[in-house]
Design a protein around this nucleic acid. Sequence first.
DNA 1: TTAATTTAATTTACGCTGTTAATTGTACAC
DNA 2: GTGTACAATTAACAGCGTAAATTAAATTAA
Lengths: 200, 200
Amino acid sequence: MSTNERRKKEIKEMKQEIIEAAVQLFLSDGYENVSMRKIAKKIQYSPTAIYNYFASKEEILKQLLMNGYSIFLNSLKEGVAKSEEDALSRLKASLNAYIHFGLSHPDYYRLIFIENLHLLQKIIIDEDDRTKGFQLLTELVAEAMNEGVLKKNEVQLVSQSLWASLHGITALLITFPDFGWSDFDGLIRFQVEAMIKGVS
Amino acid sequence: MSTNERRKKEIKEMKQEIIEAAVQLFLSDGYENVSMRKIAKKIQYSPTAIYNYFASKEEILKQLLMNGYSIFLNSLKEGVAKSEEDALSRLKASLNAYIHFGLSHPDYYRLIFIENLHLLQKIIIDEDDRTKGFQLLTELVAEAMNEGVLKKNEVQLVSQSLWASLHGITALLITFPDFGWSDFDGLIRFQVEAMIKGVS
DNA sequence: TTAATTTAATTTACGCTGTTAATTGTACAC
DNA sequence: GTGTACAATTAACAGCGTAAATTAAATTAA
């Protein structure tokens, strides 16, 4: 039946319309201030119409998390791709890319890594985007150890420590912008150097 | 007038009763799930009675933050006091005490340092408790630099970098307990060592 | 001691939230 | 054309933070 297929397309389009409205509202108003009714109003539907496409508000949130995480992964990969080819440069590039993503997409960072980290496990990025962020980091760490630019150690342990420091600087700069940070860029550079030195 | 003074005492007691109920509920149900109505029910008052003592729910939150921050400061000071007397030991003790506070009071840590960090500036701890947490850290860093166990550098920059890494490990362990952390205690030890080495 | 005044507590109410249930309208199959 | 499936709407529920009006109790003044 062609009507069936067209219907499927319509469902997909409607879902798309909903999450586009949701993203826009959440970027401007902040996530917690966006209600189902506001989303519905933006797309000119009644509030409960949305429930034909998403079971709950949390399901929309999950979709937003997927989108944000996809952008996050691309940022990391781009950062690494643009770097020099040696293992240390690639590792540093990934660290800088992580922080840079947070600072240029604070709402997404907050949503993914601060407020809903526990939901991340359940979210599978589509298809070939399987290389998750942390796996990328562990690969770069292992690479650096193999090339001898990083002291050999448990790869998981070192990667987790690096992630922790990355998250710390990013989360603090985002959630506490009015703290008297010495010098934004200087602090970031110092932190990245300290992280590398710390595990070297 | 003695009636006036007695009244002041009653107000203080009522406030105390309210925040005690609020703390209990928030510790068991999680902060966002505690409503004014639930607090009121617990202390056997009507919901709006609370508004004679706290202007809003946020004012109760601020009180909780103050309590939590007070516990936090005491934990830090205790940790330092119990350590060896040399500057490096004292600094390490403060780092460990920070993480330990987060792990033993995850709800308070989440409330203060993850969800409401921006409110922290406005909160002044009572009386002689003026030594704020970050100031304590900077003092220990300066001390360590003066004793020559830490490379001389901008004290603010180093302290902020250390705080960032502390926050990172603490926040991640709290908000993502189900992530496959190599070895909780081992990771913490490694992180503290890496932090010190990074700024040495 | 009684009357007037202050003030603490309650009830009522408003506008919001996420979500369920019942209802309406419309496009399709037979 | 009639019956059925289903998308969208309206109505409704239980909850939220909080403002306003009202009641009740305590304190002060006469």
